[in-house]
Structure formats: structure tokens, C-alpha cells
Design a binder for these strands. Structure first.
Lengths: 117, 117
DNA sequence: CGGCATCCATAAAGATACTG
DNA sequence: CAGTATCTTTATGGATGCCG
């Protein structure tokens, strides 16, 4: 598929940049949140609809972590009832190539895997 | 960077293929293991040197999970002392584009992030 | 060498209830 | 609506000992 991957690093003992990437995408929820934010802003309850299995606690926690990592932006409207919108930051946008590859892989392999599960 | 990502899916309510990908890469250790296997086979103690912080228990567990997911191959040589080699399967190789993007992102952002951490 | 078994400690995640 | 608080469960970490 892509043989260039073999050329981009030679010293395997240096601290691996893959770890750096994994630090910000830690766990599956963050990646999924970023995925759903890739185009439009979203509100808290929209995430809950998109990810029915995430708990409020996890959603709240992961949104905070993503925000403090600078990957997403939290905008609060001082209205009643409360309104909060989450959107991707420019920094978060830089993750899009990763999101895209994850999507492409999943799309290609989900049928195969659905047989196993 | 890549605007095509916006075009590849329209129905956000369908079960997201990103989740499928995340299922096999669950947790940080698996991705790292796959990364270190991207070119050459590796032995158990080589992984331990490459990932000093992983426990034997986790390494053993994650190798098993990756094997049972068909992403890596475990080859046992009937010699004394025992010799076991792990390598990527063809299926595992299909993850290389993801690994590459993770690497590229990490490489580009680790300096930025090292200020934060 | 390449593990597994056990026991214990901590951390991450899930379930449920409640609030400004 | 957008969370927080609390409690329980699961996952992971750490140490030690053993074995083919």
C-alpha cells in the first residue's frame, strides 16, 4: 500500500512520535469526538445522540481534556437555558489526516470484522 | 490541509467506521506495538527494550489480542532456549497508513507539546 | 527466553442520581 | 441544557515467584 512509511524513521530507539500523537487521542472517545467535530460545531446533547454509549461523565471529561489540549474550542452563550457549542480549533484540524485514515480503514474492514464480533 | 475528508461521509448517524478502526487499536500499547513491527519481526524482549514502561503482563496480553485480531503473527521456534517472533500480518499491514499519519503528526507537534507537558 | 500465576494498588470507565 | 457528585466496576500497573 504505502512503502514510504519504511523510510521516514531509522532510529527506533528515539522516543517515538507515535506516542506523542497517542497522548492527545488517548482512548477511543476523544477520537470519536474529534471525528464528529470535523465539519460542524456540536452541542453537548448532540454528542450524546451521536455516541449513545458514552456517559455524561466521560463526555464532559474528554471535552475538557480536548479543550485543555487546545484541540477544540468551547463557546458558552450566556442564555437560559444554557447553550454551549464545541468546535475544532486550527490545531485540532491538523488531526484530520489521521481521522481520515481511521475512517478509510474502518470503512474497508468493518464488514470483515463484523463476522468476528 | 485535506478538505476531502468532508466529502467522504454524509450520514453522521450511521455507525461510524472510525469506531471500527479504534476497536483494534484500543489503548495506546497496541498501536505502539504495531508501530515497532511495521518493518521487522520482533521478539518479546525486544518489545520490552523498546517500550520500557510496559509491563510483561500488558505486553503479553496485548500481543495476544493483536494476534487474535489477526493483525500480527506469532511464530514459535521449538528450540532451547525458547524463541518467539512476532510479525505483522497482511491485515496488520493495512494499518500502515494510519501509523504513518500518527507518526507524521507526532513528529510535527512533539516540540509544541513538549512545552505543555 | 518467553512467558504465566498470584496478589495488591491505582487509575480509568460506567451507572445512577441530582442541580444551576 | 449542560453538566456535577457519588458509587461501583473494569482496566491497567507493579512486584514477585515459577516453569518448560
Amino acid at each position: 500500500m504505502n512503502k514510504n512509511i519504511d523510510l521516514i524513521i531509522d532510529d527506533e530507539n528515539e522516543k517515538c512520535p507515535v506516542e506523542t500523537a497517542l497522548e492527545v487521542m488517548d482512548g477511543k472517545w476523544k477520537v470519536l469526538i474529534l471525528w464528529y467535530l470535523r465539519r460542524d460545531k456540536k452541542r453537548f446533547n448532540e454528542f450524546q445522540k451521536l455516541m449513545p454509549k458514552i456517559t455524561q461523565k466521560m463526555l464532559s471529561l474528554k471535552l475538557k481534556e480536548l479543550e485543555s489540549d487546545g484541540l477544540i474550542i468551547r463557546k458558552v452563550y450566556p442564555v437560559i437555558p444554557p447553550k454551549v457549542e464545541y468546535s475544532m480549533s486550527e490545531y485540532g484540524e491538523s488531526l484530520k489526516p489521521i481521522l481520515k485514515q481511521l475512517y478509510l480503514w474502518g470503512e474497508e474492514h468493518k464488514k470483515l470484522r463484523s463476522k468476528e464480533l
